[in-house]
Amino acid sequence: RPRTAFTQNQIEVLENVFRVNCYPGIDIREDLAQKLNLEEDRIQIWFQNRRAKLKR
């Protein structure tokens, strides 16, 4: 699968959610997927990668 290119707006929304909860449940991820026009699994991976970035 090709790399997902997130828009600046999508990143802002994801970062705002991350600040509140870095482990969002499936319900939050599915809601975000619908709002941001992305697949839920892409959102899940984004949070996984963002948590890894935080640990660095």
Rank of each mutant, 00 (worst) to 15 (best):
E40M: 14
I28Y: 07
N49T: 11
D27S: 14
Y23W: 11
Y23K: 08
V20D: 13
E40A: 12
N16C: 06
N37T: 08
T7I: 05
E40Y: 04
L38Q: 08
V13K: 05
R3W: 03
I28P: 02
Q48F: 03
E40T: 10
R51S: 05
R42M: 12
K53H: 06
Q10S: 01
F18A: 04
Q44W: 07
Q34Y: 06
P2F: 15
N37S: 05
F18L: 05
A33M: 08
F6P: 00
E30I: 13
R42G: 06
L38C: 14
A5M: 15
L36A: 00
P2K: 15
I45F: 14
I26F: 10
V13H: 12
N37Q: 09
L54M: 08
P2V: 15
L36K: 00
P24K: 14
V13A: 07
N21I: 04
L54I: 13
Y23F: 06
Q8H: 06
N9P: 07
G25T: 11
D41G: 09
F6M: 13
R3I: 15
Q34I: 10
N37G: 13
Q34S: 08
Q8N: 07
D41V: 10
E40L: 07
L36N: 04
A52W: 05
G25F: 04
W46H: 04
D31V: 05
F18S: 01
N37E: 10
L36H: 02
N9K: 09
I26H: 14
L32N: 00
I43Y: 01
L14E: 01
E12W: 02
P24S: 01
Q10A: 08
L38V: 13
D31S: 11
K53I: 09
R56M: 13
E30P: 01
N16D: 11
E12K: 15
D41S: 13
I43A: 05
R29L: 08
T4H: 13
Q8Y: 07
R56D: 15
N9D: 14
K35Q: 08
L32I: 06
I43M: 04
I43H: 04
K35I: 05
D27M: 10
F47G: 01
K53Y: 05
K55T: 01
Q8K: 09
A52G: 08
E12R: 06
I28H: 07
C22T: 12
D31F: 15
K55M: 09
K55D: 06
Q44E: 04
L54Q: 12
Q44D: 12
E12S: 12
E15Q: 02
N49Q: 10
R3G: 14
W46L: 00
E30Q: 10
A52C: 09
L32M: 02
L36W: 10
W46E: 02
F47E: 00
N16F: 00
C22D: 11
R56Q: 15
I43P: 00
I45A: 14
Q10N: 04
R29N: 01
